[in-house]
Design a protein around this nucleic acid. Structure first.
Length: 606
DNA sequence: AGCACGCCGACT
DNA sequence: GTCGGCGTGCTC
């Protein structure tokens, strides 16, 4: 009698089953087996070790499923590695990989032909052959990091790298990037290309898997779950915008698809191309210490104007003359301008008579006035209350509005340029794209490239994000500036208007390498990643017990209240260790000391 | 006492 | 994911 360990796509570790006489199974095979009285699909992880308990109590595998071996040896290895690394049961990893349906084809209503999505053609850039060969030449496993001068270069490089290959996975951070990459891949690979992402229905997803398993498709473009595409052979994986936080799965197993891509490549003997106009600190550090090969094409310096709003003449309370001139000059040349302000709402109302300032009862943060709703809102936790007409303390009407949020900024800009059509973020959400050449909004409003020239891009007080309690805050600000600058047409200028120029000293030239080296030096001193490994423990509901062990080389910070999703708060503990082995080994002891309703573990949080 | 419903832990 | 166990609470 043979025994096998099976994984079911649920929060469940491997379970041991007996195989019926004459059924030979290899790892990765799909089978049917009874679980809790009902028959379910499961994946064979391998032959079982010593069977715990009585062999006679084990249930029998019902049958193998015709799809056969769906996972291949390397994907089974990847599954086991993820389970160990992310401290997540094998079943949950399996569910994260292929969904609870496990390749099952449900009957479905007549398939409607999907309409071809309109797309902008990819502006193709000349990529130096020699640079491309630096990536294409080396055989076998290896990670290459392209620090691209622009997103256009990044995309062209991926195009060149993928061309002529077989067994390729191209990962993009978001659904919205698929229409950018699909046209050129489709052009070259036709039906060999398939698109895979989380918004597909179960049946569509099963169709894609069928095409991949039958060998009909060998190029996949998709979001993070496409890293698990069940190819027999993968020769390369490309990860576009590799630093993106969207690669982090926030449910089931909390994996990072970029890191999983590298692991997958290492078990498959494939090569990896990480690309970004602003690589993440971890990846760049790996390149600096020779773990990754760094590809750095020449870049043109970006013209940046830093405007100190405390020292410069102001056109309105929140718009400096310099910024105003920049916008005007872009518009006069027939080009567009994009202005980003990340603070939502209008401003912070303060009573000039008694100095009263409304604070959030739970966070203590100043409440921000939101005019359309006539409400005061806490930017941190979302608590809101009706705005006051008179000062609640002294009844005075002498209210001063401090600071400039997006709403105020929109108002002032419209007043300054009464004849220019402006697309504001609030309007854009309702009306969709407009052809206004002046765009104002948070970073979400940054328009796609290719819709006319942009000669001025401005950002107001980007240092606001520094006050987030997060060691990555500065990196995020820098990245945002890089992506904003990327929208500029050649010859354009990036305007940074700030009231705290001292905080932006290292950022103002947008010199990535100097910035990231300084950042890495600081993280080294403070012991943050990549010089340590971190994991979060998120505790929802009241903590019933908290007894943290003292461990060598492991530091436990917190608990601190944190907003984990909109409106959902949790107590968060951060565990820091000097290596991922130490981190992994510390967790069981730490988790034993915590009792609460719901506890979630997140290794390598972003 | 008798049963409906909901939460929680276990599932080989 | 889903079954059964058990606790709460309402009803005959």
């Amino acid at each position: 009698m043979e025994f096998y360990d099976l994984a079911f796509p649920f929060k469940l570790g491997p379970l041991t089953y007996a195989a019926p006489e004459g059924l030979q199974l290899s790892p990765g095979a799909l089978v049917l087996a009874e679980l809790k009285k009902s028959v379910k699909r499961a994946v064979v992880l391998g032959k079982a070790g010593p069977v715990p308990g009585r062999v006679a109590d084990l249930k029998e595998i019902k049958s193998a499923v015709p799809e056969g071996v769906v996972l291949g040896e390397s994907l089974v290895r990847l599954l086991k590695w993820m389970s160990e690394y992310y401290l997540s049961p094998e079943g949950l990893v399996l569910k994260a990989m292929f969904g609870a349906g496990l390749f099952e084809k449900r009957k479905r209503k007549a398939a409607r032909p999907k309409a071809a999505k309109p797309h902008q053609p990819l502006p193709v850039q000349e990529i130096e052959k020699s640079r491309l060969n630096e990536f294409l030449k080396p055989e076998g496993f290896g990670v290459h990091l392209l620090h691209a001068p622009s997103t256009a270069y990044e995309r062209s490089f991926i195009r060149g790298a993928v061309s002529g290959q077989t067994g390729v996975i191209v990962l993009v951070p978001e659904l919205s990037r698929i229409p950018i990459y699909e046209p050129f891949l489709r052009e070259e690979f036709g039906e060999r290309l398939c698109v895979l992402h989380g918004r597909l229905t179960g049946a569509q997803r099963a169709d894609v898997y069928e095409k991949i398993l039958s060998g009909g498709a060998d190029i996949v473009l998709g979001t993070r779950l496409a890293v698990f595409a069940p190819f027999k052979r993968v020769s390369m994986l490309a990860v576009a915008e590799e630093e993106s936080e969207h690669y982090k799965n926030e449910e089931y197993a909390r994996y990072n698809a970029r890191d999983v891509a590298i692991k997958r490549a290492s078990v498959e003997g494939a090569k990896v191309l990480l690309t970004s106009i602003c690589p993440g600190a971890e990846s760049f550090a790996n390149a600096l210490r020779g773990k990754y090969r760094l590809l750095r094409p020449a870049r043109k310096p970006i013209r940046v104007r830093l405007i100190n709003s405390r020292k410069t003449p102001m056109k309105t309370p929140s718009i400096s003359e310099g910024l105003h001139r920049g916008i005007m000059s872009a518009l006069e040349k027939g080009a567009g301008a994009v202005i980003i302000a990340n603070r939502l709402g209008h401003s912070v109302p303060v009573c000039e008579d008694c100095g009263h300032l409304e604070k959030c009862p739970s966070c203590g943060m100043a409440m921000v006035y939101h005019r359309p709703r006539r409400a005061l809102r806490c930017a941190w936790c979302g608590h809101s209350k009706t705005a006051f007409e008179a000062c609640p303390r002294c009844r005075g009407h002498n209210i001063k509005f401090l600071g400039s949020g997006l709403e105020r900024f929109e108002d002032e800009l419209k007043k300054l340029l009464p004849d220019t059509p402006v697309r504001t973020e609030s309007a854009a959400r309702e009306d969709g794209p407009s052809d206004a050449r002046l765009v104002i909004g948070t970073k979400r409003a940054i328009p796609r490239k290719g819709r006319g020239e942009v000669l001025a891009a401005g950002v107001i007080n980007p240092e606001g994000a520094f006050f987030h309690p997060d060691f990555r805050a500065r990196e995020r600000v820098f990245r945002e500036l890089c992506y904003l600058a990327d929208r500029l047409t050649e010859g354009g200028t990036l305007y940074i208007q700030t009231s705290e120029p001292a905080l932006l000293k290292n950022l103002k030239t947008l010199d990535y390498e100097s910035f990231i080296k300084a950042e890495l030096a600081e993280r080294k001193i403070l012991g943050y990643p990549p010089f340590s490994k971190t994991g979060l423990i998120m505790v929802e509901g009241p903590i019933k017990k908290l007894e943290l062990p003292a461990l060598e080389n492991v530091e436990i910070l917190g608990p601190a209240m944190r907003l984990i999703k909109k409106g959902e708060k949790a107590s968060v503990l951060m565990v820091k260790a000097s290596s991922s082995k130490e981190l992994k080994e510390a967790f069981p002891a730490i988790l034993k000391g915590i009792k609460a309703e719901k506890i979630t573990v997140d290794i390598d949080p972003v």
